[in-house]
């Protein structure tokens, strides 16, 4: 078994070497396709993150007038908590608000340096049981005299989610088309490779090689090309992503772009599996039938 595997691998390398130019062309085109797939995956995953983030942030914020007494605030919290559809009401004092802003702008504290005192109002953060109550609750909150202004990310957020969803679906469609093209590329390249080794295949069939014995070197060739392409794609993509995320974060510090290890590993695994799948599937497709006839 091991002996055969070694033979297959040797034959695969021999074949790749023999068709060096075609091999390089395959790897480059497959790498390019995987990079594009990777870009869409990154966008898609980030959009998922972003939407989840926005949805969790869909709250109504009621900014309170300054100088309200503690009792008034307590009563207000009590009353608003009982409004239908309200899940929780959380009081944010002026100090809390400033603290939070400072945290958000960590590393960019110079922005706050020029502002005297604490210009932020205290507020009530009202989370809802369902985002569809948001508008109604905001309206009711606005009727309290203690409340200066109510803010909620209603229509705008909804539209944003719609747009993102559209982008994600388009991305998925593009990924599928790319996958199809990549498999076709692999298919034709292995066909070329099979064709250029027609005589070897013929001789193999003649001296009693089983059809799987003939296929394996080509499948391994496809596997290796797929693997190599995906590793190259990951390398290039990783470098580019880190670079652009850094650039983007410098311009927009609170951009919700994921740089977590887990996220990157997930994309890497998908790309490797995809590369291998395309390589192996393309090979299998071009070697469906080994002919023992008419030698």
């Amino acid at each position: 078994m091991l002996r055969n595997i070694l033979f297959y691998i040797k034959e695969a390398f021999l074949s790749a070497k023999k068709n060096m130019v075609v091999s390089l062309a395959t790897i480059i085109s497959l790498t390019a396709a995987l990079i594009i797939v990777g870009i869409f995956l990154i966008i898609s995953f980030n959009i998922d993150n972003f939407i989840a983030d926005i949805e969790s942030q869909l709250i109504a914020v009621a900014y309170l007038k300054d100088n309200l007494s503690e009792e008034v605030i307590k009563k207000l919290v009590q009353e608003t908590s009982e409004l239908p559809g309200v899940k929780e009401v959380h009081y944010i004092s002026k100090e809390d608000a400033l603290q939070k802003l400072k945290e958000d702008l960590k590393e960019h504290e110079e922005i706050l340096a020029g502002i005297p005192g604490n210009p932020l109002p205290s507020s009530l953060e009202v989370t809802v049981t369902d985002t569809k109550y948001l508008a109604e609750i905001a309206l009711q909150l606005g009727q309290y005299s203690e409340i200066e202004e109510v803010n909620y990310g209603g229509e705008l957020t909804k539209n944003l989610i719609l747009v993102f969803d559209f982008v994600r679906k388009t991305g998925l469609a593009i990924i599928l088309v790319l996958l199809f093209i990549a498999i076709l590329i692999m298919f034709s390249v292995i066909k070329i490779s099979v064709h250029s080794r027609q005589q070897e295949i013929e001789i193999m069939a003649l001296v009693g090689a089983t059809s799987w014995f003939i296929r394996w070197p080509f499948i391994i060739e496809g596997f290796l090309k797929g693997l190599l392409s995906s590793l190259m794609a990951i390398f290039i993509l990783g470098r580019a992503y880190l670079y652009y995320v850094e650039q983007a974060k410098m311009i927009i510090p609170f951009l919700p772009i994921s740089l977590e290890q887990e996220f990157i590993i997930k994309i890497d695994i998908i790309l490797v599996l995809l590369g291998i799948f395309i390589g192996v599937f393309g090979s299998m497709l071009s070697l469906r039938k080994i002919s023992y006839e008419e030698l």
């Binding site: 069939a205 003649l206 001296v207 009693g208 090689a209 089983t210 059809s211 014995f213 023992y292 030698l295």
Partner: peptide, 13 residues
């Protein structure tokens, strides 16, 4: 057809 290889092993051409 799957047994052709085994026949071929008995025949040199």
């Amino acid at each position: 057809p799957s047994l052709i290889p085994y026949l071929r092993r008995e025949i040199g051409v």
